[in-house]
Design a protein around this nucleic acid. Structure first.
Lengths: 254, 254
DNA sequence: TCATATTCGAGAGCAGTGCTCTCTGTCGAG
DNA sequence: CTCGACAGAGAGCACTGCTCTCGAATATGA
């Protein structure tokens, strides 16, 4: 049974063990360190496989141990708890969805093309990794608090969207349509400088937040079946959503 | 361990047992039937309590049985599986969020007031019932397919939004701003007549779908912590979101 | 009214889980 | 070469969902 303090401890020990920041040390001095790094990676890979196939709910430390032919207690030498293993998988998922977004972004293209390409890439990744998506954007594990490691890597995907808008704005291509203006007090001041050297005003920031929320939300609806019998062509509806949200943020769609 | 067929069977037996449609029969002929109905309700109430306090992940049939002072095996006389119990709770949650929306809607008020009131009511209910919210809009149980009972009751909340728009439209108060137009093929044709005697065109329907998705999505962001360090005043940001989405659908906000 | 059939509760039991503890062997640094 | 840190295995605890059996209580038909 998990309690809040259990999980907090697990997260802390995870930060200490830190198997993510140094999965395979560049220079593994001793054979033991090398073996440890390799086994850590193997455990993570096996867990990843089970996550992809069966989802987080059915992922168990024991089955991972079985797959690697080791005693379940031995796995605890590498991950102090199941939650710690989950945290590592969460970091991986955030990283991958962020990379999917970044890799899809071609700064030489027009802002509209970039916007659509990134949205589609994020959707593609999510459809291909529904369980990873659920892990990071679905119901959080009870009592689970995201360790600080995750919040940095979680920003890569939305920051890609912000960069496109910043570039468009710099060339005068960001003209949001009129509508209700977001009260500045609603936005965390630190959010106004989320790109170095690039200032968004509160309303622009709010539009960005909503676009990011939309991207995640509409994919969630598709993945979780809320669009069944609602939309007839999910890809088409998604593209329309991307364009709608792009237009809302001020990109010249239509 | 749950397999798809297991769950399908459980859902079917649930539909047969049908403890929701007749929780307490008006005229319980025999004492046995009366006792059965009462105990079913008690189990459901205890499960509800545990769900509210600890969330679905920590809800176990055994702890429900313990709370009621009965053997765990006895509970299976009333609910064929844990998933069946969860399904009953899902139906309850959908019903309640739908009622929260409907009760907040005052048809005599202006469409903008109605819109905002319903949005706020849904948010209030969700904040007060975060685990129930997670149950219906969060990550679905692996392999779980929503039984048909749920899809009807799931529509009450979005239909409340649709009714407001239909009323506004009838009095000429629905004027959506221009923007990308949704291709008709993207929308399921049946969705165009979701209100009896009220026809929405595909683009209006798409805007409705997006508004419904936004309402659920922005609440999910708030509940799951994705707005931490992003927004400074969640209630204020939510109101702005409601207005923005209302304006997008064509209500005269600002 | 009485025998029969159905229902119900309890208990034991199976297979699985997360996690801890102990014991033994191995490896690495002094 | 010795000693301490580390890694693996195994047993064990408490918990889970779920099944089966076995009496006891209850309803039903004759």
């Amino acid at each position: 049974m998990h309690t809040r303090s259990d999980i907090a401890r697990a997260v802390l020990s995870f930060r200490y063990t830190d198997p993510m920041n140094a999965p395979i040390p560049a220079r593994a001095r001793t054979a033991r360190e090398r073996a440890r790094a390799e086994l850590t990676a193997e455990i993570l890979a096996a867990a990843r496989r089970q996550l992809r196939e069966d989802g987080a709910a059915l992922l168990s430390l024991r089955s991972v141990a079985r797959e690697l032919g080791m005693a379940s207690s031995a796995v605890y030498r590498y991950f102090a708890s199941r939650d710690e293993l989950l945290t590592a998988l969460i970091v991986q998922a955030y990283t991958e969805i962020g990379e999917a977004a970044e890799n899809a972004d071609r700064p030489s293209a027009s802002p509209e093309e970039r916007w659509l390409a990134v949205w589609r890439a994020v959707r593609e990744w999510s459809l291909a990794h529904r369980h990873e998506y659920a892990l990071i954007f679905g119901t959080p594990v009870p009592g689970y608090v995201a360790p600080h490691i995750t919040i940095e890597v979680a920003g890569r995907m939305p920051l890609t969207l912000a960069r496109i808008c910043a570039d468009a704005k710099r060339s005068g291509g960001l003209n949001p349509p009129s509508g209700p203006v977001c009260p500045p007090e609603a936005i965390e001041p630190a959010m106004l400088q989320l790109l170095p050297g690039e200032a968004f005003d509160p309303d622009e920031t709010a539009r960005l937040i909503l676009a990011w929320n939309r991207l995640v939300g509409i994919i969630g609806y598709e993945l979780h079946g809320h669009l069944a019998n609602v939309t007839a062509d999910d890809a088409l509806f998604f593209d329309h959503t991307a364009r709608t949200e792009g237009a809302y943020i001020g990109l010249p769609f239509n």
